[in-house]
């Protein structure tokens, strides 16, 4: 609620008082805690999505517990799994059917960038066909990363930010970064 509080003032007036805020801030605050989701689950990440949506992780805390299997009623499109070239028109149509305001989360590495499918059959990341708000890498991502992605989306909705954001690793075990750098010849440390 921090962003609403920034814009909000409590004005004293007798016992009750009243509150002023900006309409946009109030609207964004309301939207980000009532996200109806459309799960577009196509591959193995779907299992992990079910886990994240289960009571153990209590996604209802974020006001996002209600899946809507009609795109007309949904606010967030969760693209969960690999999108093949043949399926891309279906996904695009689902997105076009959603009403504004709408957001897109790419769940897992395949939806984010195609993953290890570097071939004729797979869309190399759904940002090639849709504007994506949050990418959650992982194969599959852990439920904690999914919740991080949801919180990241809420923060972006509050800020009115529509650039693509990527959920980052929380932490790696000791020595893992050096090993990954050596194995894959990449730089992970500044």
């Amino acid at each position: 609620m921090a962003d609403v509080e920034l814009e909000t003032r409590v004005v004293g007036g007798g016992d009750a008082g009243f509150v002023t805020t900006k309409f946009e801030a109030l609207l964004a605050w309301a939207r980000k805690y009532s996200l109806f989701q459309y799960p577009f689950a196509t591959a193995c990440c779907g299992m992990e999505f079910f886990a994240a949506a289960s009571p153990r992780y209590d996604i209802a805390r974020f006001g996002a517990e209600a899946p809507r299997f009609s795109p007309r009623q949904a606010d967030v499109l969760w693209v969960v799994g690999t999108i093949s070239q043949r399926q891309a028109p279906v996904l695009k149509r689902i997105y076009d059917q959603m009403t504004e305001p709408k957001w897109v989360i790419a769940f897992g590495t395949c939806a984010s960038c195609g993953g290890f499918y570097d071939n004729y059959a797979t869309v190399p990341g759904i940002d090639k066909i849709l504007p994506v708000d949050v990418m959650i890498p992982g194969c599959p991502p852990r439920p904690e990363a999914v919740l991080d992605g949801l919180m990241l989306l809420q923060q972006k909705i509050g800020d009115g930010d529509r650039t693509t954001a990527v959920v980052k690793n929380t932490q790696l075990p000791d020595g893992a970064e050096e090993k990954l750098e050596r194995l894959y010849n990449i730089r992970m440390r500044p």
């Binding site: 070239q85 043949r86 891309a88 028109p89 695009k92 984010s112 960038c113 195609g114 570097d118 071939n119 004729y120 059959a121 797979t122 869309v123 190399p124 990341g125 940002d127 090639k128 066909i129 849709l130 504007p131 990418m135 890498p137 991080d148 919180m151 990241l152 923060q155 990527v166 959920v167 980052k168 690793n169 929380t170 932490q171 790696l172 970064e177 990954l180 894959y184 990449i186 730089r187 992970m188 440390r189 500044p190």
Partner: peptide
């Protein structure tokens, strides 16, 4: 093998591949 024939035209200005990001920055939102 990598030659795709997309049914939906790709949007402009997208990256071909996500580059590796810095893991040691933790998970700040």
């Amino acid at each position: 093998a990598q030659q795709a024939q997309p049914l939906v035209a790709y949007r402009e200005g997208t990256y071909d591949k996500l580059r590796p990001f810095l893991a040691d920055e933790g998970m700040p939102l």
